[in-house]
Design a protein around this nucleic acid. Sequence first.
DNA 1: GTGAAAGCGCTAACAC
DNA 2: GTGTTAGCGCTTTCAC
Lengths: 338, 338
Amino acid sequence: MGASLKDVAQLAGVSIKTVSNVVNNYPHVTPGMRAKVQRAIDELGYRPNLTARHLRKGRTGIIALAVPELGNPYFAELAGAVVDAAARHDYTVLLDHTAGERQKEILVSQGFRAHVIDGLILSPIELEAADLLGRTDDAPLVLLGEREYDAPYDQIAIDNVSAARTAVRHLTGLGHRRIAFLGARRESARQPAHLRLRGWREELTAAGLPCDDSLVAATDGYGRVDGAAAMNALLDRGERPDAVFAYNDLIAIGAMRALTDRGLRVPDDVAVVGFDDIEEGRFSTIALTTVSPDKQAIARLAVERVVARLAGAPDLVPERIQPGYTLVARESTARRPG
Amino acid sequence: MGASLKDVAQLAGVSIKTVSNVVNNYPHVTPGMRAKVQRAIDELGYRPNLTARHLRKGRTGIIALAVPELGNPYFAELAGAVVDAAARHDYTVLLDHTAGERQKEILVSQGFRAHVIDGLILSPIELEAADLLGRTDDAPLVLLGEREYDAPYDQIAIDNVSAARTAVRHLTGLGHRRIAFLGARRESARQPAHLRLRGWREELTAAGLPCDDSLVAATDGYGRVDGAAAMNALLDRGERPDAVFAYNDLIAIGAMRALTDRGLRVPDDVAVVGFDDIEEGRFSTIALTTVSPDKQAIARLAVERVVARLAGAPDLVPERIQPGYTLVARESTARRPG
DNA sequence: GTGAAAGCGCTAACAC
DNA sequence: GTGTTAGCGCTTTCAC
């Protein structure tokens, strides 16, 4: 085992408090004393036991982040931004996967690693508002993602309906009329894609176009393979959309791959818009048009919110904060001649 | 503040030890007692304070993982695998970024969050073997990645020279003769790409081809944008390779994008091989041929190694473990007529 | 089977 | 300025 404060104090012939003062850079220590203690520290290779400090202070400097999975670049990029934002406040990030499963999300929301995490940032998929009602853990919780919860917690998310409408408007503006939506969840019980799908409906209606439900394709998950499968399924049942709005970039990329495989050209035959602005879309052979949520802002706001509550503003009223987004038009959509 | 063992004991009218026994599922507790205690626990909403437990037991159940950055899908996918592998052993993962900077890597290797992490998995870029010499932290350290260190720590990495040779052999086997290498680091002081570059050299030599250093293109980083820049630089200075072997998939994807932009066709004009097998490459419009390290195995072995040392085999002799890899041929390379 | 008490290593009153 | 001391909440001998 490593040396403790006591060991250092003994070796240096001073009290524990003095060593503690040196370790914590207390201002009022005489230089001579400091040097003497430092020598003992070096000799013993002393390292403060943070666990003990945590117990004593009731704080750990650790924030937990729970995302469905890092395999999705959106969450990976977001997690990276959270790690960096947390570091700026001297916090470290404890990471966990929920796989988008309700049970795991509930588990995490209810005191994941109680007392070792100071706060929790959770990006739920299937969690219900009711699941949050009984939450007893007193670590600040910040919710991310598309779902809106009627619960007293901070929520950081762009305006998904409006963002989806912007994407669809981009397509209608280019003259597209049969615009498919890819990524409604197959099991309709819980519908995380809800808001973006609503945006699709609202905007089509606003443009005087029919909301043809046969142009809505369900997916099992949110990956590239799901996008390809949904696109193929749509085409297989004889639908022929002239544009596709996908729930996220991965689904869009899978759809583009499926289209290309079938000899359909993007954007000439079918235009494609995604959602997330993962870096992958910028470099795909057909660069992907997408809705770009401000991930840096999301991460920053989430961390700041946790930190603020931790730093003496625990009674901050829970807010629903909407960071900005932009539509980034790239090669996968194009102006139509007509 | 939450209730403590003492509070529960008081309410239940029993001793602390009894409550502790219940909380820890000790076998020898009478059912009646257990029920009584459980009632008090529920009433108070008691949750064990893990920080205190950690201090007492000297273990936290937390493993740290330090990677350059999650923005690179290889590290994101690897991190995801580590999180899952750790969870299987009831460990949670504390995540940190090094940005591939030596100072940060040194900092992490020398007692990052001392005593709060039980072990450390580090994927260094610029760290030197000498930096590890003075390491005093006694948390088990496992090194990942391309570099080989002459240091007494477990290292989990595929055979990079052999893997690179396999990739180049794939190209020579298809008849390519002017094979460029993209991704040597510009500053030659530290050369993380060392082994893959050596594999390139060795295989070309073995095939009786010249190692033309003008076909080696440096990059500033390891991203898509770096790959595009390097490819453009190579073409700008008049080189005309018939194939490209990139340090990693991102560089390869950037290179493909640059080639396409200049009207060169992949694989007809230039074949491209990457390294990492990130999922992105499988779904790009021109699916990327790549070397696929077994990420699951890397993550599993790294975690198992840490756990094994923690579980009473601390004197395990440090090993250099080489998980498997495969070459996955996709559309970005193709057999040549000649 | 259950209780009493010591102590993990640290911080923060409070004395001197 | 520096020393003394009392816990933070838990686990764990050791009695009973």
